[in-house]
């Protein structure tokens, strides 16, 4: 636990989260969501939760983003908000 990095990354995470729900394109949202998850993974390794970080890196970030992209691929990128 290193509060300086923790603080910095937390701020980044919030920014990414807001961005990923504000962006007006689903593919972009999926990509930013991937970034969000990767930052979360980083955050958890900062807090010393290695197993959680590992799981988030593989499950949350990797596979989830792939699922998102696959779903967007099969549907549409269009969104009004």
């Amino acid at each position: 636990m290193f509060w300086q990095i923790d603080l910095a990354i937390l701020t980044l995470v919030v920014v990414t989260a807001v961005a990923s729900i504000m962006v007006k394109d689903l593919l972009g949202a999926a990509i930013l969501f991937g970034a969000y998850s990767f930052l979360m993974c980083l955050l958890w390794s900062i807090m010393g939760a290695v197993d959680v970080a590992f799981t988030e890196a593989s499950v949350g970030a990797g596979v989830s983003s792939v699922f998102f992209v696959a779903a967007v691929f099969r549907t549409s990128r269009r969104t009004k908000d």
Binding site: G34, V50, A53, F54, G62, V69, A70
Partner: peptide, 24 residues
């Protein structure tokens, strides 16, 4: 030594995610 594995997995899955997005 504990973090290297995460790092490797991270690199791999980041790669896969980017690849998937570009394959769109």
């Amino acid at each position: 030594d504990m973090f290297v594995d995460i790092c490797l997995a991270y690199a791999m899955l980041n790669f896969i995610a980017v690849l998937a997005a570009s394959r769109y």
